[in-house]
Design a protein around this nucleic acid. Structure first.
Lengths: 207, 207
DNA sequence: GGGTAAAGTAGAACAGGTTTCAGTATCGAA
DNA sequence: TTCGATACTGAAACCTGTTCTACTTTACCC
């Protein structure tokens, strides 16, 4: 066990152990993530091959594994990266809508369309996310926190959410996650995804 | 491409192509599924190794692949097998409860405790299920139908469900599926799973 | 029973994720 | 500037899912 540059996103989010990355290291990390996303875009999960990621980002295989201890870690980090971007974007242009339910559905559907634009990338990230085992749970958790942030933002409520609302948010997130999986495996349509999100969002305005 | 003994469950459920299996073939199939489940029980997804499944069930590797074209197919079939058993059991002892929501939560929690008894097996099956790509969608769909059957049974309603109810059932299933994943990766507790199911089930009695 | 097509067997070969190792480059502190 | 620790490189090796091949057995039809 050596210390390693495995820290999470480039953002202000919770950072854990390890010395801060040097400039060159951050650069390497970004390059790797960019390559992974590019490979995923054309070919999905299977096209992200560790040897090729390493080569294309000009890094030795061992180094790649020092940054991301598995292919799953790599793809989950990629998802984190994308979600952070999305969250920023949503903050710049928050969804309009009369009630929280509508806004939440809107925000998630916008996220959905973002993913739809690069379906192969989405496939790669989501499969990694749901295949992840305990060794990745910290990173997956981070992704969940980002989703929660998106939903809470969309609710756009001053007060902290009530217990009921927090419960509703959990179910909305479950629905989002699972709907994504079924959509990617071709078992449900965009329309169904929207309808499912709307149904779950009804829990927000309940009582 | 040759025809193959890849048909679905041993049940009366929708069967598709291929000649019916001979006695010995059914026997082989059962043996394979039994072995897979046994290996999964002690060691989870990773412990189900195709060479070992083949050897332990006294079948050549090529034959194993003729029956189940991938490890994912094998584990999804295992899940199907288990769910069929569970459904029968639930039909023998249907959940009691005043309203549909309670009964549905109860049924799913009972399923949950069933899985909890063999957590490694659960891990193997659920990971396979959510990692499955399009090539397995028929089999995954069958699993979903079984889950739906469990929920509809638990609702115990004479009339066919309304559009609202069908929408609620979908969200409940999403919640179930995703809650399972988060529980298996240690990111949520049984109590949280129950609470999530209860929240989703509230959609049933809504309006 | 004899012939044949499909199913099964044993084992090698291939592919891609992961690990390992010996050597080289880089970085931070003295 | 130099030293020691850590990071990086290149390449081979390892493991397991999957495919392939040559051969044998089985099921079925005449």
């Amino acid at each position: 066990m050596t210390t390693s540059p495995v820290t999470s996103g480039t953002h202000q989010a919770a950072r854990a152990a390890g010395p801060p990355l040097t400039e060159r290291q951050q650069e390497r990390r970004r390059r790797i993530l960019r390559t992974a996303a590019a490979l995923a875009c054309r070919g999905g999960f299977d096209a992200v091959q560790m040897r090729e990621v390493a080569e294309s980002s000009g890094v030795a295989l061992g180094t790649l594994y020092r940054y991301f201890p598995s292919k799953i870690h790599l793809l989950v980090a990629t998802m984190q990266d994308q979600l952070e971007r999305l969250l920023e974007q949503l903050r710049r242009h928050p969804p309009a809508g009369d009630d929280p339910g509508t806004r939440v559905t809107e925000a998630l559907m916008r996220a959905f369309h973002g993913l739809q634009r690069e379906p192969q990338l989405a496939e790669a990230m989501v499969r990694a996310l749901s295949f992840a085992d305990r060794s990745v749970s910290a990173e997956v958790d981070q992704v969940c926190r980002l989703t929660t942030a998106i939903v809470l933002d969309a609710m756009g409520q001053d007060r902290p959410p009530s217990a009921r609302q927090r419960a509703a948010v959990r179910v909305i997130e479950h629905t989002w996650q699972s709907a994504l999986v079924t959509w990617l495996s071709g078992r449900s349509s965009i329309a169904e995804v929207r309808s499912d999100l709307e149904t779950a969002a009804r829990l927000l305005t309940l009582e």
